Amino acid sequence: MPTAMTYAEFAAREAHGVSPAYETLSVAVSHDPDVLALLDTLPPAKRQPNLLYAVVTFLGGPVTDQAAFRAFVRERWASIVPEMRTRATQTNETGRCALLLPVLAALPQPLALLEIGCSAGLNLYPDRYAYRYGDHPLGDSPVVLGCDLTGTPPPAALPQVVWRAGLDLNPLDITDPADVRWLESLIWPEHHHRRERLRAAARIAAADPPRLRRGDLVDDLAVVAEASPEGATLVIFNTSVLYQVPPDRRRAFTDRVRDLPGHWISVENPATFAYAGIPDPPDETLYNILALDGRPLAWTRPHGQAMSWFGRE
């Protein structure tokens, strides 16, 4: 897809109604030949809007004034390039735990969680967060995750988690201030509640850090999974990760994860997997698909703010 179209689509489908600043920036970039030419010097996977905006934020640049942003990109491109090439959109969005919870709570307890593309591992603590599905509260925690849920009753209990591990090409250290600053840079400018939530979740994880391993989602998956304790249901999960993985490696991961014991939960863009016979999404904004063991169950919003259930439990 041409870079200009990528930014125009991001404005219309992801930022519209969610982040006025990023919607304005994306429209401006889609019409700026100078910035587009700079972006086109990068590999296609490194041209994405979220990555550019996070790098500019990380470097202290402006993201709420489109003219100042464009000037910063042109003037500071030499500093931006190495960050764009080495960093990834490791948005450790705890709100996605609200999407996982209905499935996690229904599986045989206790659970051993293994997250693919874990970033700093904040989504490995679904049992230590509180939730609000509409008017239905669940749990007691300084981290409260709200989700508009339709099509299925909200979960009635939190899962029991006895083991947490993550696998990532570049896991982040939640006790490292620089890594936490990068996570904060990935949060959209108007989303102050997400920033506060990230900091609260970081304190929970830093008090009991998860086991995070640097490695490949195909080559190293079985080794990490084998370390899970006996007597616990192994749950391997990934959220908004596989779109960054080449198709051949994605297929290899799917084959590998299906051969392992336990269950696999996936929350990914519908373009990532070809699901047949599913209903249309609720509207024209961007939705992901929640699936259990390859079976699609629900349409979900990217940050966990809503879920429309259509599958059989």
Rank of each mutant, 00 (worst) to 15 (best):
Q160E: 15
R164L: 09
N269I: 07
F10L: 08
S30F: 04
D173S: 10
L149T: 09
L51G: 03
A88Y: 12
D248E: 13
M307S: 07
R312P: 10
V218F: 03
S240W: 14
A11W: 00
R195V: 06
A205E: 00
E93K: 02
T24M: 12
A15E: 04
D127V: 08
Y275A: 11
A274D: 15
L124C: 00
R258L: 12
R87H: 12
P177D: 09
D40F: 02
A105E: 02
W264R: 14
Y275D: 13
V162F: 07
N50C: 14
R194F: 10
E313G: 14
G277I: 06
E75L: 11
A201N: 01
R85T: 14
I265V: 15
Y7V: 07
V241Q: 02
A120R: 02
A232K: 01
L114Q: 02
V27E: 09
P43H: 10
D280N: 15
L260W: 06
A12V: 01
P20V: 01
S228L: 03
H192Q: 15
P247M: 11
L101I: 06
E226V: 11
A12H: 05
L42I: 06
A105D: 04
T41L: 13
A201T: 03
G311C: 06
S185D: 01
A106E: 12
T272R: 07
S30K: 04
E83F: 05
L104Q: 06
I289T: 13
L138E: 06
I174F: 04
H303K: 12
L51I: 08
E93D: 10
D127L: 09
P2T: 08
L25W: 00
E284W: 11
L242G: 04
V245D: 08
A201H: 00
V162Y: 06
Q109K: 11
R251M: 12
Q160A: 12
T57L: 09
V29T: 06
A291Q: 04
P33F: 08
R312F: 09
A105Y: 01
A200G: 01
G166I: 04
V223T: 15
E14Y: 11
L158D: 05
Q160W: 10
R256H: 10
Y22K: 01
T254W: 14
P142S: 10
V56M: 01
P44F: 03
H136R: 11
I80D: 00
V224M: 00
T3I: 00
P159V: 06
L172T: 04
W264A: 14
R181A: 15
